[in-house]
């Protein structure tokens, strides 16, 4: 989850030496958790292009999101190998479990499911689900639902 308290000037300093708009946008995604209007304005400023150009670039790539994501971001790989090994069923089960569709965020802000995750490049271990930084290889519906319920439980206990 991003940190929205990072100021525009701090973000500007951070991306001043970025070689391209794309890497600067990746920084924005990392810092704020999603592409904010302010981030677009700063990137446009640093690279001396219009905000429309920066926004257009960002919307081309699926890796960028334009609304806050959940604390735990779930990506279900939809590459060919994962797909034929049942990725769609895993995704459907996760959607049902969380009550949201891919691209959405749960109301408590804990989970979000990425829209359209393309091949993540580890087809030998298909199907793959990524939650945050954790990779789950050769997984299945039962395993994934158990992982998600565990995270939910941990979060609830942490909150108390």
């Amino acid at each position: 989850m991003g940190d929205l308290t990072v100021t525009k000037s701090a973000f500007k300093k951070r991306i001043t030496n970025e070689p391209s708009i794309l890497t600067a946008l990746q920084q924005a995604q990392e810092v704020y958790g999603y592409i904010t209007p302010d981030a677009v304005a700063v990137v446009a400023d640093v690279f001396e292009v219009s905000q429309s150009r920066v926004y257009s670039t960002a919307t081309f790539y699926h890796q960028f999101t334009f609304a806050p994501r959940g604390k735990h971001v779930i990506s279900v790989c939809m590459g060919t190998a994962c797909y034929v090994l049942g990725a769609q069923e895993i995704l459907n089960a996760i959607e049902d479990e969380l009550g949201i569709k891919a691209g959405g965020v749960t109301t408590d802000g804990l989970f979000s499911i990425e829209h359209n995750t393309r091949c993540v490049g580890d087809c030998a271990s298909a199907p793959i689900v990524i939650i945050g930084e954790r990779w789950f290889n050769k997984t299945n519906t039962t395993k994934m639902l158990a992982v998600i319920r565990k995270i939910k439980k941990d979060e609830q206990e942490g909150a108390q």
Binding site: S50, Q51, S52, F60
Partner: peptide
């Protein structure tokens, strides 16, 4: 060179528009 119009989105869903 005001460059306010750009293609937003990708593939069949893309449209010509402005920032946001």
């Amino acid at each position: 060179q005001v460059d306010v119009l750009a293609v937003n989105g990708r593939g069949f869903e893309s449209t010509v528009g402005v920032a946001w």
